[in-house]
Amino acid sequence: MSTRVLAAGGGEFQPPGTNSVIYPPFVAGITKPMVLLVLSIIIIGVFFWLALRKPSLVPGKTQFAAESTYDFVRNTIGRDMISGKDLRPYLPLLVTVFTFVLVNNVYGFVPFLQLPTMSNPGIPYGIALVVWLVYNAAGMSRHGAFGYLKHQTSPPGVPVGIKPLVIPLEFLSNILVRPLTLSLRLFANMFAGHLVLLVFIMGGEYLLLHGGVLGMVAGPVALVLSIVLMFFELLIQFLQAYIFTMLTANYIGGALEEEH
């Protein structure tokens, strides 16, 4: 996108658009997000390998970090949402989702990478699809196909008269819309955060170079603010990974829940 700005040159300021997250492939159809995705699983794998190479009851530094991550997913997110023994089979999924989303989000903060992979909608779509399949399959194997649909679409305690209204709505929100909101929330947050940062950085640069006297003042301010925003984005990136994992756990927990 920097070429675009340079091309725009001294003329009109070209705001960063949606194409700023879409990179042309380097070689043979391989794009930047693909490289980052592969890098992410290497990072996570090496991190866990280092932590668990020599596991001890009294953890070292790396093991402690890995254990805190695991503990966060297991006890803070998982325990709340999925009750008791049901948690263990879904724990790998939750850990995978959390670490995968977190690392891919935090790419937005890492210098030179500077692109949250999740700001490309294809990847959240894929993960959300997996989550959708998992929680529906979990619910169906627990309650049976019809029992599961009944469980998800007709909440107990609703008067019979309103049921025709409630059932389609619940079906819409619990079955159809969930994967969309799950993936789009992640995508939109990452995408918007990335765009905001770009606006601040490129706008600040433009003001500094072409903005005249006022721009000489406003440009640096914008650049400094962009650094502040970057840390704010770091918080958002973590929060989104947390929310994504928590909602995954919540959907699974809700599907497995016994009828009251």
Binding site: P33, M34, I41, F100, G122, G126
Partner: peptide, 18 residues
């Protein structure tokens, strides 16, 4: 380009890595 349109190869790579 519409940012909501997934780039399919990326989705596939994402799913495989996942």
């Amino acid at each position: 380009p519409n940012p909501l349109m997934p780039h399919l190869p990326e989705t596939i790579v994402g799913l495989i890595s996942f």
